[in-house]
């Protein structure tokens, strides 16, 4: 038995339960496909399914990873070429947090913020999405302002501490 398991692993690369689990997944997915492939919209379902993966993994992820680069590069540059004294309070996360917060809200509420659902919404409910773009801008402003205020407070606290420590020495 142990010998079988060893040679199985050398061949398959994982334990036998692994095969059972992934085959179960593939079989269930295949069953779903068998139910849906005759639907006239099946091709568009597939396009959106694969499109969602591509949009996230190859567009959205690289975009936000790149957006973070200026922050990390400037921090590196500052450490490398800036003055000896490190910043009292690093600013990097005071930019990251509100930017990410605003971006994630934009992503989740994109149809409403950009008014893409406007016509259908008016038809079903008599409501409009006018003003919701402004709400998003307002929330973004609050996030950045709040972050700036916290940064200022932390900077002040750090400066006082430095001054006091300096006086002690």
């Amino acid at each position: 038995m142990a010998a079988f398991l060893r040679s199985w692993r050398r061949f398959y690369g994982e334990n036998p339960l692994h095969l059972l689990s992934v085959l179960g997944c593939i079989a269930l997915s295949g069953y779903v496909v068998s139910l849906v492939y005759t639907d006239p919209s099946a091709i568009w379902l597939a396009v959106w399914f694969l499109g969602a993966v591509i949009a996230h993994d190859l567009v959205l992820y690289p975009l936000y990873a790149l957006a973070d680069q200026p922050l990390t590069i400037s921090r590196w540059a500052r450490r490398r070429y800036g003055p000896e004294r490190p910043p009292r309070v690093p600013a990097i996360n005071h930019i990251r947090v509100p930017a990410l917060g605003s971006a994630v809200l934009f992503l989740i509420y994109l149809p409403t913020i950009t008014g893409r659902g406007e016509d259908a919404l008016r038809f079903t409910s008599g409501l409009s999405t006018a003003g919701i773009w402004d709400h998003w801008l307002l929330i973004t402003a609050i996030l950045f302002l709040g972050s700036a205020v916290i940064y200022a407070v932390r900077l002040g606290v750090a400066a006082r501490r430095t001054a006091r420590d300096g006086a002690d020495v």
Partner: peptide, 14 residues
């Protein structure tokens, strides 16, 4: 949930 049906297929089915 935000009335954007631009995917063009039946939401319920999809």
């Amino acid at each position: 949930a935000q009335y954007d049906y631009s995917f063009g297929f039946s939401f319920y089915l999809a």
